[in-house]
Design a protein around this nucleic acid. Structure first.
Length: 676
DNA sequence: GTAGGGTTAG
């Protein structure tokens, strides 16, 4: 018997499973009783990490000791098998074995991981009855940790306060709970209390309290803790360094977080990620991208946190190509079902006009939530896919996800961009009846735009009256609607309002100038232009750019300085003549200058988007099926009808992003259905 | 013969 015992102990120590299994079968053959050796074998299997072997043997045991129950439960919790741990715990109670302090210290974590609050509360009750709740520090910590995970901080605090012999681990558990639920002042208070009582914080405590300092943008305390980290000799501990980085970047001290990162001896996956996250949050996207590349070079694999963050950077920088590479990484490391990385990818593809790709990312997400669904609705909305947005909106409700304020902004934008006026009105009134959603300025802006553009100007104006302190953006939205419908009188009235709010706003002056110009009121145009000059307001020059063979080519209206200007002009004139045979008739009302008809015509021909498209068609020959152009202002009506015909003529898909939205031109039609 | 706490996200 002793011989077997020492053999098992040796196997457990060296973690040699094969030998352990051999010893196990030897014991069976020898006919020895399991009563004593079985427990030893189970512990051996657990030490080797073979929970399945341990469980099989455990189930065969005629009598099971509390120590073995505890080991079985805690090892399952530690291996992320909380479901099995909870089941074991129930069978233990059914067999009439009372839990002890060891059982409790393990089982509460399993309850919180399984989201079983009621079971946790029942177990807490039992711990009270057995007198183990606050007398044993381990048990108290486990209970505090469980309530903290459920966000029940009052319950956590209630248990904490009654523990007489508090130690650093118990205090840290409470601090972490507060920090993770935004109760950072309470976290600091507990921290101060523990220090006053002479309990020395360790790396776990400092890592958490730094996060609270960051959340509070409390640089003073943050720096104080930083010096404590150094004094305690914890500089080489990764977690405290990670928290330091995060603290500095939340306090907008990017340079300090870069300094911490550069001084690190070792960076874990989480450290790299935290650094990248901080850089993106502080608008340092380029640096974030280069750090990400370095992380990959150092063979540190990214996780969904990293990927979603660097994808955000790609979105801001419109780096579609890098985004596509990251998409490939998502698939490769098997996180393409992750909602965080997925939502970031959907945002990127949506922003770059690739709705099909956004949709294919969305379709493989495993765990949908409101935010990831919102991303997809927004991608549809941005690109004028109104019906698809509405369908998804219906589906989300059927799946039991409550739409939030962002959902409604996206869905109203979808209605707006697709000209779905009635649907938009219906949804808007449904938000009014839904008391869970607070109507914001953005909802009103969308609705005013929708009504205004469909010529329901009075209704739009009434809506503005409902907004408390309406801002320039709202008035300007209405002003733009007046411009579209040539409502000069109303526009002048609104103009006065706008100039009260923002007397030197350039955009407003330009809007009114354009309105006068399209109504042919050239006298007023001249007056406005001199006002604009006096105010030193400059209109942004119209500009388009196109990415051909990974190089960006920029075009300004009438600007023929491109090295290939000759070829571009030839292509442009050829296109114009060809689309004329398809019915294109240059519409000079879009020329906002008082020129004669012929000059107007040539000014129209050299709009920046026409130049960019002509260039892309010439440069790519027949190589690509789609062309993507970007414009800083809105695409004009003449160019819009011209591009539609060019898409028909050349059989290419032309995707244009203007200042407001996407236009997908294909086979002579545009996704905006001529409503924008 | 067993046990408790940490850092990254729209």
């Amino acid at each position: 018997m002793n011989f077997y015992s020492s053999l098992i102990a040796q196997c457990a120590h060296t973690k040699s499973v094969t030998t352990l299994r051999a010893v196990h079968s030897h014991i069976i053959k020898s006919g020895s009783s399991y009563l004593l050796l079985g427990h030893k074998l189970i512990h051996g299997y657990i030490k080797c990490g073979c929970l399945a072997d341990a469980r099989n043997l455990f189930d065969e045991m005629p009598k099971r000791h509390i120590v073995t129950w505890n080991s079985m439960i805690s090892s399952h919790v530690n291996h992320g098998k909380s479901k099995e741990a909870v089941e074991l715990h129930s069978s233990m109670l059914v067999e009439g074995v009372l839990p002890d302090a060891y059982t409790f210290s393990a089982i509460f974590k399993a309850f919180s991981e399984m989201g079983l609050l009621c079971s946790g509360q029942r177990a807490h009750g039992l711990a009270v009855v057995l007198g183990l709740e606050v007398l044993d520090g381990f048990v108290a910590t486990a209970i505090v940790g469980m309530y903290a995970k459920f966000g029940k901080m009052k319950d956590a605090r209630f248990v904490f306060d009654r523990v007489l012999d508090k130690d650093v681990v118990l205090c840290t558990a409470l601090i972490v709970g507060y920090a993770q639920h935004g109760l950072d002042r309470l976290a600091l208070e507990v921290y101060k209390g523990m220090v006053d009582r002479g309990i020395k914080p360790n790396e776990y405590t400092l890592a958490s309290i730094l996060i609270s300092c960051g959340n509070l943008v409390d640089l003073v305390n943050g720096q104080l803790i930083h010096s404590l980290v150094i004094k305690s000799g914890l500089e080489s501990v990764v977690a405290s360094q990670t928290s330091l980085l995060t603290m500095y970047s939340r306090c907008s001290m990017v340079e300090d977080s870069i300094k911490v990162f550069n001084q690190l001896a070792f960076a874990s996956q989480v450290t790299w990620t935290s650094f990248i996250v901080g850089l993106v949050q502080n608008g340092r996207e380029e640096v974030a991208v280069s750090i990400f590349r370095e992380m990959i070079r150092c063979s540190v694999s990214p996780n969904p946190f990293t990927l979603s963050s660097v994808l955000q950077a790609c979105s801001s920088l419109a780096m579609l190509e890098l985004g596509e590479q990251i998409h490939a990484i998502n698939v490769k490391i098997g996180v393409d079902g992750n909602k965080y990385a997925g939502a970031a990818l959907i945002n990127l593809y949506g922003k770059c006009g690739n709705v099909d790709k956004a949709r294919s990312v969305f379709d493989v997400l495993t765990d949908l939530d409101v935010v990831s669904i919102n991303s997809m609705i927004y991608a549809f909305a941005q690109n004028g896919f109104g019906c698809e947005a509405l369908q998804l909106f219906e589906r989300m409700k059927k799946l039991g996800h409550q739409p939030n304020g962002v959902t409604f902004i996206s869905i109203l934008l979808a209605c707006n961009n697709a000209g779905l006026v009635e649907e938009g009105c219906q949804i808007f009134s449904s938000i009014r009846n839904n008391h869970n959603i607070e109507l914001t300025r953005e909802h009103f802006a969308c609705m005013i735009d929708l009504l205004g553009r469909s010529r329901r100007l009075e209704e739009a104006a009434m809506l503005i009256e409902e907004v408390r302190n309406p801002d320039v953006v709202l008035w300007r939205t209405l002003l733009n609607a007046c411009r579209i419908h040539g409502e000069v009188k109303m526009a002048e009235k609104i103009m006065r309002k706008v100039l009260e709010l923002a007397p030197e706003d350039g955009g407003t002056h330009i809007l009114l100038t354009n309105l006068y110009a399209s109504a042919g009121k050239w006298k007023h145009v001249i007056e406005m232009k001199s006002t604009i000059r006096d105010l030193k307001l400059r209109k942004n020059p119209a500009m388009s750019w196109v990415d051909v063979d990974r190089k960006i080519h920029t075009f300004m209206a009438g600007d023929l300085s491109h090295p290939n200007a000759q070829e571009i002009l030839e292509m442009l004139h050829e296109l114009i003549e060809k689309v004329k045979t398809l019915g294109y008739n240059p519409d000079t009302t879009f020329v906002l200058q008082d020129l004669d008809e012929e000059k107007k015509m040539s000014s129209l021909s050299y709009h920046s988007e026409k130049l960019a498209i002509a260039f892309a068609l010439w440069k790519t020959g027949g190589r690509t099926t789609s062309i993507r152009i970007f414009k800083n202002l809105r695409v004009c009506g003449d160019c819009h009808s011209w591009i539609k015909l060019v898409s028909l003529l050349t059989g290419r898909e032309i995707i244009a992003r203007d200042a407001k939205r996407f236009h997908h031109f294909k086979g002579g039609h545009c996704s905006c259905k001529d409503y924008w």
